[in-house]
Every structure is written in structure tokens, then in C-alpha cells.
Simulated scan of single mutants.
Amino acid sequence: MSAQLSICVCYAQPGTQTLIEVRVPAGATVRDAIDASRIVERHPEIELSTAKVGVYGKLRPLDAPLADHDRVEIYRPLIVDPKLARQRRVDKTRREGSIEGRKWLSKDSR
């Protein structure tokens, strides 16, 4: 009997997550685990040819080998560039003033 790896394949959406435990042969790759999980059948919006995937939060190619108890993660595409989102939050805070600044102003106006 050949050695088997226990792998968890994960895909998260806003408000829900899918975790599928699979057993794959030793030497299996990220793609092998994803295929064994049949997660793409459950979530047809996943496009493996363009999706980013990783193991425990670190990006990995589909042909990366797995180790026992690895967690394979399929990442959704970003809706907004993180740098742009952060800049928008900073701009909003500057327009509205920070909470600390408002507390300071309210104490001064007593």
C-alpha cells in the first residue's frame, strides 16, 4: 500500500467557506489535490488557469508538491487594488478627521 497524504482544500467567499478533506498519493501536487476535491464542480466561478493558489498563505504553482496535512487555498481575484483601497481610507480619514482628532476638538470646545 502506497503512502497517502491528508490534504485540506479551501475556498472562501464573503460569508461562506468551503473546506474539503482529501487523501492523495505521496508526491501529489497542488493541482492533484484540487482535482481530487472536485471543488471546481461546486464553485464553477473558479478558473484554475488564472486563479492564484497557495499552501498555508504562501503562493505556490499548481505543480508544487504537497506534504501531509497541507492546506491548499484557492484565492479569489481582488476587486480593488490593496494600495488604492488603503489610499481611499486615508483620504476619507483626512476628510472626516480622525476619531482622536474629534475627541481632542470636543475637549477643547468645552
Rank of each mutant, 00 (worst) to 15 (best):
S98Q: 14
R42I: 08
V24S: 02
E47V: 01
S109M: 13
I46N: 04
A36S: 06
I99V: 15
T18I: 08
T50V: 07
I99W: 15
V22C: 03
R31K: 08
L62V: 02
L59A: 10
Y56A: 02
E96I: 12
T50I: 08
I34Q: 06
S6G: 08
L78I: 15
A33G: 01
Y75K: 13
S6I: 07
P25M: 03
R102F: 10
D32M: 02
S37L: 01
R71M: 06
T29D: 04
G101N: 14
T16V: 10
V9E: 00
V53H: 09
V80P: 07
P14M: 13
Y11R: 00
G101D: 14
R86F: 13
G57C: 03
E21Y: 00
E47H: 03
A33Q: 00
V30I: 06
Q13Y: 08
K107D: 13
G27N: 05
S2Q: 09
G57V: 04
L66K: 08
T29H: 04
R23H: 00
I39T: 07
A26V: 03
V22Q: 01
D91E: 13
V22A: 02
T16N: 13
D35T: 11
R94T: 15
R110C: 11
R88V: 15
P14I: 08
A3K: 10
P82I: 13
L59S: 08
V72Q: 00
E21S: 03
E73C: 01
A12V: 07
A67T: 04
K92S: 09
I7Y: 00
L78Y: 11
I99G: 11
I39D: 04
Q17F: 09
L62N: 03
K58T: 09
S6K: 10
L5C: 10
E45T: 07
E47C: 01
I39V: 09
Y11N: 00
R60Q: 02
D32N: 04
R31Y: 06
R94N: 12
Y56C: 02
L78V: 14
E100H: 11
A28W: 07
D70R: 05
Y56S: 02
I46H: 05
V22T: 03
G54R: 01
G101L: 12
T29M: 06
R89Y: 12
L48A: 05
R38A: 07
R94I: 14
L19T: 06
K107M: 14
R42A: 06
G15W: 05
L84Q: 15
R88M: 14
V72W: 00
V40W: 01
P25W: 03
D108E: 11
